[in-house]
Every structure is written in structure tokens, then in C-alpha cells.
């Protein structure tokens, strides 16, 4: 029983599914929040898949998502600014989800991979994710 893939499956069904539902329905603000949450979850899923399939080279995907995900959300906030409204539903969930989710995934992965260049990459991804999450949720709140 590959626990990493099981975790990935849980994250996909439990997280990505509702994010899709949120992105497809409701006000523009709620959709942007759902999209932001989806990019965060995606990065974690890629990390888990990389470990589950025992393919360290898949981590590059997570690295690119950690950088492009927030950029995509900032695009939406910049260009959909006036439609987002003051306090879109689900915004409060964003920052805690990032602060809890990222370490909860990166730390066990670091333990599993052991010290070395790979661990450095994981830590970098974790930091990028946290920084991106905080900044984008602030940007959405102030849109």
C-alpha cells in the first residue's frame, strides 16, 4: 500500500474536486479563491506523486507550479479586480491552508528523501509556496 499515492489520491478527491466545483460556480471572487487553492493543492499533489512513483525528476513540476500558480492568481486579481468584491467566500481558508498544508507535506518528504540536493529543492518549493500563498490571498482580499 503506497501511502504517498494514497495521500495524493485523498488530496485530489478531497481537495481538487471541491476546488473545481468552487471554480465552476458562484461569484468571480469565489472562483479566484478556488483557483488559488487549486494551485496550492496541485503543488502538494505533484510532490506526493514524485515520491509515490519514486521519480525525483517529477519534482520539477512542483517547482514550476509553485512559481506559476501564484502568477496565474495575480493575473486574475489584476484583471478581474473590480468583479471580485470585498470578502469572497473561502478566503479565510487560504492562508491557514497554506501555512498548514505546505509544511505538513514537505517535512515528511524531507525526512523520506534524506539530506542532500533534493531536500534543498523541497525546502525551496515549500518556501515559494508559503510566500506565494500569503501574498496572493492578501492580493485577493485587497482587490
Amino acid at each position: 500500500m503506497n501511502w504517498w499515492l494514497a495521500a495524493a489520491l485523498a488530496l485530489v478527491t478531497g481537495g481538487l474536486g471541491p476546488c473545481l466545483w468552487g471554480a465552476a460556480r458562484g461569484s468571480a471572487g469565489r472562483r479566484v479563491v478556488a483557483q488559488n487553492m487549486a494551485t496550492l493543492l496541485l503543488c502538494l499533489v505533484f510532490l506526493l506523486l514524485a515520491q509515490g512513483y519514486a521519480r525525483p525528476s517529477y519534482v520539477d513540476l512542483a517547482l514550476v507550479v509553485a512559481v506559476l500558480g501564484p502568477a496565474g492568481t495575480l493575473v486574475f486579481t489584476r484583471l478581474l479586480g473590480d468583479e471580485i468584491g470585498e470578502n469572497p467566500p473561502g478566503l479565510r481558508l487560504l492562508t491557514p491552508a497554506v501555512l498548514v498544508g505546505a509544511p505538513a507535506t514537505v517535512v515528511p518528504l524531507c525526512i523520506a528523501t534524506g539530506p542532500g540536493r533534493a531536500m534543498g529543492k523541497l525546502v525551496l518549493i515549500g518556501l515559494l509556496l508559503i510566500a506565494g500563498g500569503i501574498v496572493t490571498s492578501a492580493a485577493v482580499r485587497r482587490a
Binding site: V67, P70, L128, A131, G132, I134, A138
Partner: peptide, 13 residues
């Protein structure tokens, strides 16, 4: 904060 994030993340990207 967003401006600092942008200027920091640009070289990384």
C-alpha cells in the same frame, strides 16, 4: 508586499 514578492520571485522564476 506584492511588489516585494514580484521583485523577489522574478529572478527565481
Amino acid at each position: 508586499a506584492l511588489r516585494r514578492y514580484g521583485l523577489l520571485v522574478l529572478p527565481v522564476t
